[in-house]
Every structure is written in structure tokens, then in C-alpha cells.
Simulated scan of single mutants.
Amino acid sequence: MGRYQYTAENDDYEADLERIRISRKRRKARKRRAKRMAQLGRLSVRIVFLVIAGWICLNLLRSNAVTAHADGNESETTSLIAKVEQQLFGFIEKETLVEKIPAPVSRTEEEVLEVLSAKAKTDAQYAYIIEHASEYPSAMLAALANNPEMLDFVSGYLEQTSVSSNASLTKKEKKETYPLLIQWDSRWGYIPYGSSNIGISGCGPTCLSMVIYALTRDASTTPAQVAAYAESAGYYIEGTGTAWALMTEGAAYFGITGTEMSLDKDLMKKRLDQGHPIICAMRPGDFTAAGHFIMIYGYEKDGFLINDPNCISRSRQVWDYDTLSSQIKDLWYFSK
């Protein structure tokens, strides 16, 4: 028999097919919601357990504080209580609530589609992206295959009708000393940057934007504004990305000084102690499969604190010097 032809007689058949398709779609959506609720339930139980355990530990410490006060060790006990609180709630924020993202991998276009197609079997957003894969830049699909945090940004790419460079920082970001700004944030991620856009290629301007705000508190210098200047001033190099000169020559345009520095653990800590944030150009590794910029804003006992403009998860981790230093190609510290 030939291809099925639509006629008035088979109108009910077509309607039945449509109802079946909708019914299947709804069942899949209910399964996804049930799975998410189950995951949230397990997460909630874990958080409650940690809070209860921490509360018990804190109360035991506080009950011993009276004795410690009599023995002259009050400050030591208070310090211990503060450390326990920091460890407890820091663990909940950094380890429990933030999914860790694997290191990026270089893939062929076929391999990228395989990764996304596998996820499309259980996720409607990935399914939509696969259905319209030919309409997306290949670099954007490759970025999503490496970083699931970008899902909303990528799925919204075809629907965005206009971009504006007038986006501003949120009240929460303005209150932070070193706010984490993400290059693929929809406020500026879709804005063109060279032959790409800020979401895919704007790590350099986004890092510099974070540094500028930290030092000057000028909220107008968003990633969109820095990227616009970088492109107009010739700091965007086609096929490469942002030129390193943006970190020195370009920084001066915004009223700050960027100075190249040696890759030295003690020197990095010294500059950070002096209030000088650091931007690093990274080689392939934990942060990138090609080239990337990250910002370092502090350190603690276990390593350095970073803002990775491409990944929230990696920004919530503490990075030891040996891991970072093996991937840093160059670095600059900044002052006002």
C-alpha cells in the first residue's frame, strides 16, 4: 500500500493519533515530575539529617562552653563553634545543593549529538534542542554537552527575538564583594561577540566585569558593556577569542590597572590579601576543552576560591594550587 493519505474519512483516525501523542507526552511529563520530586525528597532528608546532627554538635559544644569559660578557654571554644557552623552550612551549600559538573571534553559534532540525544529521551528541553539541532551554532551544542547548567540558555536561543545591552546587576549581586557573573546569563548571553555571542565566547569580558565591579562598584560595567568595548577596541580575535591585552591595556579604559604576575602560590595569596583579584588564562583541563578565563578572589586552608564565568558548580568548589597551577597559562592581578 502507498503512503497514508489524509481524507475526510480518516479525520477521526488523525484525531486519535493526536490524542495518543498528547497522552504519551503527559505521561512522560508526570514521570519526570515524579523523578524530580523523589530526588528532592532524598535531598531534603539529607539536609534535615545534617541540620539535626549539626544542631546536636553545636549544643554539645555550647554546653561545654561554660566549663571552658571557667578554664580560660572560652575564645577557643567559640572559635570551634564558628568553625562547626561554617563547615556544616558550607557543606550543605557547596556539596549538597550544587551538582558537580565533569571536566569538559572535546567532541566531534556527531558525538555531541549523541550526548544530547541520550538526554533527550527523558528531558523535553533536550528533545526540543535535538529536534532543531540544525538551527543552533555547533559551538553552542558542544558547550551544552559539556555543561548541563546551560540548558535553559540554549533551549531559549531560538525563541529570543531581540537582545539588549542595558541589563543591570541584581540587588543581591550588588551587595556581594565578588559577585559571580555567568557569561551565558540570559541578560547578556545572547548578545553577539565577534562571530559568536557572550554566552559562548565571553569569558574574558565577564571575568573583567566581575573585577571592575569588585574594585570600583560601578554596576554599569556589565559583561555586555565590557564585551562591547573589547570588540570595538580590537581585543576580540576571530577564531581565538579575547586577546590577553584586554587584561592590561583594556582594563585601563575602565579605571583599573591589570598587571601580569608570576605563577607563584605565595605571591598569589599576597596579592589577594592586598585586595587584588586575579584573572587567569586557562589551558585545557578542568575548566575548558580549548581556552578560558577564570577569576580568583580569595583563598582558604584547602585552596583558592574562584568565579568561573561558565560554571556555577566549579565556582562553588575550593581549588588547590597544584590543580590550578598546572592549567594556568598566564595571570594578572588588578588594582584600582
Rank of each mutant, 00 (worst) to 15 (best):
G255W: 06
E149N: 03
A120Y: 04
D308M: 00
I101Q: 04
Q274Y: 10
P309N: 02
M210R: 05
L181V: 03
S313P: 05
S106I: 08
K172R: 09
F287L: 04
S117Y: 03
K28T: 07
S165A: 13
E76Q: 13
I20P: 08
A228P: 06
E149R: 00
M247I: 12
T78M: 13
N147P: 06
Q317R: 06
Y190K: 01
Y6V: 15
A82E: 10
E149M: 04
L263Q: 14
L40K: 15
E76G: 05
S335W: 04
L60H: 14
R36G: 09
V51G: 09
A8D: 13
E114A: 09
P137W: 06
P148G: 06
L263R: 10
L272P: 01
R19N: 10
E131P: 09
Q160G: 03
I312E: 02
G239K: 07
A68G: 13
D12I: 07
Q86D: 13
A133E: 10
A118F: 10
A142I: 01
S138A: 14
G156H: 15
Y190V: 03
E159V: 12
G2Y: 07
A124I: 07
V154W: 00
G250A: 11
T67G: 14
D218C: 08
Q125K: 08
E18C: 14
A29S: 15
N147A: 09
R271W: 09
R32Y: 05
L180M: 00
L88R: 05
G156V: 09
A82T: 09
T222Q: 05
D152T: 12
G285Q: 03
S186N: 08
I22P: 02
N64Y: 15
T67A: 11
F254G: 03
E149W: 01
Q86V: 03
I312F: 04
L58W: 06
Y126S: 04
A38H: 12
Q39K: 14
C280K: 01
R27P: 03
G255P: 08
A29C: 11
T78E: 13
W332I: 01
Q125N: 03
N166T: 15
D266K: 15
C207V: 10
M37Q: 14
Q225I: 10
D286W: 01
R33L: 11
S44R: 12
V115K: 00
Y321L: 10
Y4S: 13
R187M: 01
R107N: 04
K28V: 09
V115D: 04
A65D: 08
E131T: 12
A233E: 11
R21P: 00
T248Q: 14
C57Y: 11
Y190Q: 02
G189A: 03
P192T: 05
T259F: 05
I130F: 04
N310F: 00
N64Q: 15
F254S: 02
I306P: 00
I294L: 06
H276N: 14
D322W: 08
S232T: 14
D264C: 11
I92C: 05
A219H: 08
D11H: 13
D11C: 12
K100F: 05
L50W: 12
Y321N: 11
I294G: 00
T242W: 02
E173S: 00
G275C: 06
Q327R: 02
N146I: 06
A243R: 15
T77M: 12
W244K: 14
L40D: 15
D185V: 05
F254N: 01
